[in-house]
Nucleic acid binder design. Structure first.
Lengths: 189, 189, 189, 189
DNA sequence: AATGAATGAGTGTTCATTCAT
DNA sequence: CATGAATGAACACTCATTCAT
């Protein structure tokens, strides 16, 4: 179906090039679809981007939720949250980058607002994990949203560094991230 | 002088709108200068951006260096590095945001490369602080550059969150950042 | 069709004003077409110019080839080659002028190279006529390409003079050109 | 003196790059002179170009006149006229090219008109040599101006070809030009 | 459901020229 | 005589969007 081809092409190109450098022409060509078809399925570039962002967050949320379903000690849970994020950030590093940073740019205000809200929702979701961890007596009390924000920024920045310096290795990457995250979150026993 | 007016206008607009959304027309208008004047002082948009980035990093480096000149225990030094970054990120949050994130975009490759190098140099500078801290027996051994990258990403993300949620308060902001940074860096005694 | 309107407008304006003085705005206006349409059909000003040049040479080559198909003595053939060139140069004097002279200017190097090659091919085509004439024992031996170049320059210059001084008359024009060309080329018997 | 430095720089650059591709900045830089200085000595780019064209034609006229002063048979005189032109065209091929061809372009009409008149004067001067040759009984009767025009076009085109194909060699170049020019002009005895 | 020709406002850049010093 | 900072109109080109088919 055309719509799927478009979405796939858009993910690929937005990830590789960023929002502005990706033109609707590029997407159409990559998707093997005529330019007009993009506007048949989406009202414009902004809505297409929004769709991808929404799908991305939905996927992220879903994966994390599955991870948490398993019964495991808090430190294992945090570690696996980190691992999941690292994996996804590694795979879609540029897209994540765009979502968390480049959002300010040239999108229509209403779409922008919805994307920002989406991001806030996701932060809230992660914050909630932290809050429940505290309520279970396993994590420290913290300003949860701020901590979630900080944690995601840390992970993203570290992953980006690792991507730019491939000699780093994933083990060292995980270890370093955990060195920051675990002591800050886990309640000392 | 025209050049200064241009730089000021460019900082303001790049900070508010980002690199792409800021047009040379906008800058000229904001600076009360004819468009051609921009090109008299700078070879193009990219060079103008580069100038601002360079100045920004130079200022940052300088301020941190002053901080470190003082003789103080490692934990105090780390705290004050964090504090400095938080202050500067708060003051120039959007500019910092652009510098550290929007770099990927549509700038001429050679200018981009120089900016990326500038950023790497700054990371290396912070990493060096961490390395010397370890050599003095006060900080943990870590992949210094990766850790520096992670730390700066964490600070930026936290500061941005605080900017977007002013009710957070600077105390809580510092405390949260330090909760991540100090245990990760300081050697347990 | 838009494309044709554009080509026609471009021939007219490039002929009247030359390559540099003709702006894409002018062409769009003359063609009653939006500016973007030019770039839908041609990758840029250079390619548009190249198209016209190519078409021009193709037409020229074709007409000469037809002329040569007829079986006639060498002096008649040379005369009719001259006549053809004179006619076409008279009709499209400014365009010919641009093609043969203004090529040096500010076109992208790769396009320029193709145009130059096109011109060289045409010279080679005329040179070949001279070579075959010699092989048939009717024309003198000469550095064929150089002679072809010289001959075309002579014709163009003479035609341009006649255009600027209409009182000259076509008979006198042909006679003078032939006075240079025939003795130089025809083998004395 | 500044004025001379400017003229020299202008000759060099107009010759190398053509009228349009040469900017006033380039000339100022090449002349080691501030941009404003150009406008102190010349009213604008057009006038500067006109000056050079005038000087060029004056030099050409002068050199030919000297050549003709010597008492020599007509064929030798024609040959030496040709030789002189070839030499000068070789040395300043691009400038000659511009003067004879690119004149149409973007110069103010009044300046353009004066340059065109200059060129016409020069043609008339060469035509006069042909006329006197006829009156002396040594050259054929011809439409002198048309013939002069044709001859100069031929020489220029041949020289340009030789410049572009250096393997041609000056001997072959002279021989070919003379093969066209001499039989056309010299009265058969 | 899909197309692709056509659009036009917007962008970065160039450059001959001016003018206060 | 000479300067060089400043100008602004002109330019080639981009691209999200529209719409008749």
């Amino acid at each position: 179906m055309s719509r799927n081809k478009i979405v796939d092409a858009a993910i690929k190109l937005f990830s590789e090039l960023g929002y502005h450098r990706t033109s609707m022409d590029d997407i159409a060509k990559e998707a093997n679809v005529a330019k007009g078809t993009l506007y048949y399925h989406f009202s414009g570039k902004g809505e297409l981007f929004e769709t991808i962002v929404n799908d991305g967050f939905a996927m992220l949320t879903e994966k994390i939720r599955q991870e948490l379903a398993e019964d495991a000690p808090a430190d294992r849970q945090i570690e696996s949250i980190v691992r999941r994020h690292v994996e996804l950030f590694l795979q879609y590093s540029e897209l994540v980058h765009i979502i968390s940073n480049e959002i300010t740019n040239g999108i229509e205000p209403d779409i922008l607002e919805r994307i920002v809200r989406r991001k806030r929702d996701y932060i809230a979701f992660v914050a909630d994990v932290l809050r429940r961890g505290h309520e279970d007596g396993e994590l420290n009390e913290l300003p949860y949203e701020l901590a979630a924000s900080a944690m995601l920024g840390l992970i993203e920045s570290a992953v980006l560094h690792a991507v730019r310096h491939p000699e780093t290795g994933t083990d060292k990457l995980h270890a370093t991230i955990n060195a920051f995250v675990l002591p800050a979150l886990l309640r000392k026993k």
